[in-house]
């Protein structure tokens, strides 16, 4: 982490790392998060789950462990039915009919072209068109985690720089940034995101990252600003000033490393927050485009499937997200404890 960590005396990062290693819950969480990241990386390289759009199973193929309980003979007819016409919704009004129509419109070619024999059951089941849910959940994780991660980095970067400048320089600079902060926090976060999503007609992963990142900096800003306000009058910064260290040097060489625990914890918290936001946005159809799968879009499909008793897509997406978010939250708590500056001395 730090260049100095390798030297004879343990630096603060080394000490924090040692404390984290003592924390069994924190280490478990770290390993879980690490596993997710590895899967995301592999998916990104195309080594796992290369194509989720292939229709490998019959429609609503049940998960392998569940298939025994099902009436196997019923599968082909149901599949045929689904292929030939719209899925019956048992008289319930479908609130997402427009989205479903859009998704269907995207895929008719794929459905007709499929001639390979379809499997009756899949590891984690299949969806309405027979896409493999396992593949989808991996690709969905890739999308949701990447969006969350990149947006969080963007927001944290923005918040840190703005908070540092505002807190360090104070006076009118602080007033100006505080005004901006006031404006952005006056509008509830999701409403602001909705408004931007409504204005920007084109959907896309990059758009999503930008929306989340450009609106989500406020939390980091508030905390980093407070840290800078506190640290700028600390004696070590005053001493650096008395020595002739420039403002830039005091801001980024002296103070920044001493606020890094706040920033890191915020970054970690933001990842969780943005993943949750992405899921809600994609669920409502304001997030990822229809040709990209994310946990949110899976939950959207799963909502209607559940009424038919097809619970596996919901379970897969819901559990995948819950495990990651739980692990990330626990990691955040562990980081907060391990990096606690009160334990430095």
């Amino acid at each position: 982490m730090s260049a100095r960590a390798s030297e004879t005396s343990p630096g603060l990062w080394t000490l924090a790392w040692r404390r984290l290693q003592q924390d069994r819950v924190g280490m478990t969480a770290l390993i879980v998060v690490g596993c997710y990241l590895v899967v995301v990386l592999l998916a990104l390289m195309g080594w796992v789950a290369p194509d989720w759009t292939r229709e490998v199973g019959v429609n609503y193929a049940p998960p392998v462990f569940w298939a025994d309980d099902q009436d196997e003979t019923a599968q082909p007819s149901q599949a045929g039915q689904a292929l030939s016409g719209p899925v019956p919704l048992y008289g319930l009004q479908d609130p997402l009919a427009t989205e479903l129509a859009a998704i269907r419109a995207q895929h008719p070619g794929a459905q007709e072209a499929t001639e390979v024999p379809r499997r009756l059951s899949l590891p984690l089941g299949g969806d309405k068109w027979g896409h493999d849910v396992l593949t989808k959940v991996i690709k969905g994780s890739e999308t949701s985690i990447l969006v969350g991660l990149v947006a969080a980095i963007l927001a944290t970067l923005l918040g840190t720089v703005m908070g540092a400048v505002a807190g360090y320089f104070g006076r009118w600079v602080d007033d100006a940034f505080n005004w901006l902060y006031g404006v952005f926090t006056a509008i509830p976060y999701l409403l602001l995101v909705f408004a931007i999503a409504a204005v920007l007609q084109q959907k896309g992963v990059v758009t999503l990252v930008l929306i989340l990142g450009l609106t989500g900096w406020t939390g980091v800003f508030r905390l980093v600003r407070a840290e800078y306000l506190k640290h700028k009058s600390r004696e070590y910064v005053l001493a650096a000033g008395a020595m002739g260290a420039s403002h830039m040097r005091r801001m980024f060489v002296h103070i920044l490393p001493n606020t890094s625990h706040v920033i890191l914890v915020q970054l970690s918290q933001n990842v969780v927050g943005f993943i949750k936001s992405e899921v809600i946005l994609s669920f409502l159809g304001f997030g990822v485009p229809v040709d990209v799968v994310s946990w949110g879009s899976m939950l959207n499909e799963a909502q209607n499937e559940l009424i038919l008793g097809k619970w596996w897509q919901l379970a897969a997406a819901g559990v995948a997200m819950a495990i990651l978010v739980t692990a990330f939250s626990m990691l955040t708590d562990a980081l907060r404890d391990a990096l606690d500056p009160k334990l430095k001395y």
Binding site: V272, K276, W295, G296, L299, G318, A322
Partner: peptide
């Protein structure tokens, strides 16, 4: 509480509506 916070609101709503209402 950490686990409860980690489950998406959407999942609560979808499952809750299905189980308790439907």
């Amino acid at each position: 509480s950490t686990v409860m916070m980690s489950i998406s609101l959407l999942v609560y709503i979808i499952v809750g509506q299905y189980v308790f209402a439907s």
